[in-house]
Amino acid sequence: MKANPERAREAARAVLQDFGVKGVPVPVERIIKTRNIVLQYAPLEEDLSGMAYIKDGVGIIGVNALHHPNRQRFSAAHELAHHVLHAPEIQKSVHIDKGFRVLLRDDVSSQGIDPLEIEANAFASELLMPQEFLMDALDASGLDIEDDSGIEALARKFRVSASAMRYRLAGRF
């Protein structure tokens, strides 16, 4: 399978439109719950940000409660992407504890080489930092992408990490 990040961004835009999002920060938790996906926060291993799985026909997203709230939001959006884009894969993925079928966010996913993870990151980025709202914020602020304090202020507005915002802006240019 080859990654299709544009398809993932289009899917995120469709979710935003379906939910009627008019501004930021995007209410990712409400979006997940409206889609009848159970969202659970629990302390997980430090290197595990989240998981997506389907148990008894119910979609579930697990997020590491020990991570920063902005990281939790990105993880939740990333795992939502797996439900939206990769439902067949998360039904048949690796079994771990108690027979849960999961798609883990791990070292391989963070390297950006797994097509599913590339798509999930593109979806999460567009969902939490929609291009339309990001362009408006950039136009209003006149932000210089080399300005760390400006990036941090923009990240706070969108309730994402500064590193996620930098990554998103790097893809814009």
Rank of each mutant, 00 (worst) to 15 (best):
L128A: 10
A155M: 01
S149I: 04
D144V: 03
S93F: 15
K98I: 05
D97H: 14
I96R: 15
R156P: 00
V160Y: 03
D114I: 13
Q111C: 10
E126R: 13
D97P: 13
L85H: 12
E132M: 14
D107R: 10
R105S: 02
F100G: 05
I96P: 09
E117W: 04
H86L: 02
I113N: 12
E132W: 15
S125V: 01
A137I: 00
S149Q: 06
R105I: 02
Y167C: 06
I90T: 07
D136H: 06
H86G: 04
H95I: 08
S125E: 12
V84R: 13
L103C: 04
D144A: 13
I151D: 02
M135L: 15
R156Q: 05
D144K: 04
A124T: 02
P115I: 14
G142V: 07
S161A: 11
K98P: 03
A164H: 07
G99S: 04
Q91R: 15
S125N: 08
A153I: 00
S109E: 08
D114M: 15
V160T: 04
L85F: 14
V108E: 11
P88E: 00
P115Y: 06
S110K: 09
G99Q: 06
L104W: 07
A124D: 08
F133Q: 13
Q131G: 06
E132A: 14
A155N: 03
I145S: 09
I151G: 00
D139C: 07
V108Y: 08
V102C: 10
A162K: 15
E152K: 13
D147P: 05
E119R: 04
D106W: 02
K157S: 03
V108L: 12
F100L: 15
Q131S: 08
I145F: 11
S141M: 07
D144I: 05
